[in-house]
Design a protein around this nucleic acid. Structure first.
Lengths: 233, 233
DNA sequence: GTTGACATTATGTGCATACATAATCACAAT
DNA sequence: ATTGTGATTATGTATGCACATAATGTCAAC
């Protein structure tokens, strides 16, 4: 037997994962119970439980009380990315970051925006358009609505000093959010801001964020042509 | 005191998270140690540990031995998405899925592809181009390389029955992968396949996947105009 | 003042035990 | 066949305890 190894939960985790990768336990198949594995590996059930829990949250196995544990039949792939604040994104490329606020007005948004942000009719919100630059070259055009009822402090901040992006990330906690990516042909407005040709193919991302059930901000970013977003699987 | 509540780790988790959201403990600030919290909440240290561990993996707090636990100063936002197989994506919209393989050849890829897939010089790989349709309308154009040294079984599969996508997801386990999204102007080749105009703005995603240190597949998908990818924060 | 040895401390983990909970099965009643 | 009921069982969780490990602080030696 090779059971003389250590039995940290990471070890158990790797051994179980190995058995799944090499198809000792195939997708859909029931794998031995915690108690059995604990005996087999010579450790406590708690340790097996910990290892299996990690595998379950990683989506490798499906667990159900009484029914046991099965190797997940993969139907989806989970991808994730850490989206840094724009300043960091620029500086990571060794470029100098700058930004400028182009418009900033408190006004009543159109019905679509009103609905998404769950504002009451005729309620105003803060609308800010700004440009982020890398070494003086337009990098991202930002079109943002901020719910001043959720974040009243925002009205007092001087956004010529700190970018809205940065201020919000550092000062407002979020409970949930949605992030939609799309390829669009640049509009006249956006093309002018980014100094590209109207109709050029660019990436846009729309992000809506929430603090419990109150909307925080709704922002659309238009990236300069060629921008890539990288995720890991 | 309101310490008469239950003390499941989820409860403790929520109470700590509440204290962070309402800024009782602000970003960067040191929060009380496990032992202290355990006493305060009237539960075992293990339970506090479990709650804090979840918060740590969610990126809400940073923990260091001896140094204690701090509320994370947010500098990045984590976004995730579950990418389903294309069939599911189409059928979820209530449309009928179909696909056709356009080319399938075993050949030596160019140097870029060879490098990315870590093939040896002059080693061949399987190149497959196919089209996915929703209700008969082109949906995604797929350009894929498969490493036949990692997955030799692939040569025996009839890809007119099952799509490559589907077969791989169900039959090949992965250990890691990278996923890059970009907005591109459609090339002549892709425009023809998707039945759109050359130069139209479309989303492309390139995905490279690995089984330990051996490459599995390198695939680029070109989505029909207007396609959106949705992530959650 | 710098270095290095050692104590201290907060988190990290393993284990035995007990009980909770959800799903399933077996079997009887209808 | 269907429904209901209770036993069974695998996972889920709480706890006390012990020890491991990584950072940090202290203090003496140089």
């Amino acid at each position: 037997m090779s059971n003389t190894r250590t039995h940290t939960w990471q070890d158990i985790h790797e051994r179980i994962r190995g058995n799944i990768l090499n198809r000792t336990w195939s997708p859909g198949e029931l794998i031995p119970g915690e108690a059995e594995l604990a005996e087999k590996f010579g450790c406590a059930r708690t340790t097996v439980n910990r290892a299996m829990r990690e595998l379950a949250t990683a989506g490798v196995i499906d667990r159900k009380r009484r029914a046991g544990t099965r190797v997940t039949v993969q139907r989806t792939r989970r991808v994730t990315a850490e989206i840094p604040i724009i300043r960091t994104q620029v500086e990571a490329q060794g470029l100098e970051y700058s930004f400028c606020v182009q418009t900033k007005k408190l006004l009543v948004p159109n019905t679509t925006i009103t609905q998404i942000m769950r504002l009451r009719a005729q309620q105003k919100a803060l609308h800010i358009q700004s440009l982020h630059l890398a070494n003086g070259v337009p990098f991202i055009h930002e079109d943002r609505w901020i719910n001043t009822h959720t974040i009243p402090e925002v009205l007092k901040v001087d956004f010529n000093q700190t970018s809205v992006n940065e201020w919000l990330v550092e000062n407002v906690p979020l409970t949930k959010g949605e992030f939609v990516i799309e390829a669009v042909a640049s509009s006249k407005r956006v093309a002018a801001a980014l100094e590209i040709s109207c109709g050029d193919s660019i990436l846009s991302s729309e992000r809506a964020t929430w603090l419990d059930d109150r909307s925080v901000t709704l922002v659309t970013l238009y990236y300069a042509p060629g921008h890539q977003m990288v995720f890991t699987i």
